[in-house]
Amino acid sequence: MLRFTKKVALASFKASIPVLLGYLTMGAAAGILLTSQTGLGAFWAFLTSATSVSGALQFMAVDMFANHTPLLTVALVTLSINIRYALYGLPLIERWKGIPILLKLYLILSLTDETFALETENKYPPGEDSLTYCFLISLFDHIYWVTGVVAGSLAGGLLNFNTKGIDFAMTALFIVILMDQLQEKQTRIPAGIGGICAVIGLLIYPANMLVPSLLLILAAILLFRRRLEVANA
């Protein structure tokens, strides 16, 4: 059972401060983008950010809402962007065994990259409850993200300047994520495969390039599995 004390609350808040800064600013950028590109207000900012709790997807949602992307493509895009989440549970299965089901469902809902990192690090103060510490980190991070997106959306509605070109923020975000991933050598061939498949997808089906691109990527990484696993070993 959860055991709330001042000490554990303070420790989890302190651990979450870097996430606070990151989520408020990135969330605000996504919220500004949503409202300036689609005209959708704080209600949609809240609904999307509170349920999906996913950074890259929040940016892609703006693009998909604006283009009325077919729902099947929305599902495929979400699957590809967030498939890494399918592995995040692995180190947490044992620790979360037998905890109350509602708590478990919430911890799963709010499991982002940053929350996962803090929860696997799990630096709870001695004598305090590890699960309470993890729950509070989840809750804090979730609140930061939703607050950032909603605040950005409200600001986006007030901004009275020409926002043409602001969608480059999403391009820049993906460039930055890619550059950070490329620091690890074994990501380079997969990234190259992704780039080539996307160019082919754009050439063969420009109206909805993501579907052929993502299917090609899946086919390519299955086809080159042996070579990629050797390269990674």
Partner: peptide
């Protein structure tokens, strides 16, 4: 799949 997807999103 992570880096492959992000690279395709850049394109």
């Amino acid at each position: 799949i992570g880096p492959a997807v992000i690279a395709s999103l850049v394109i």
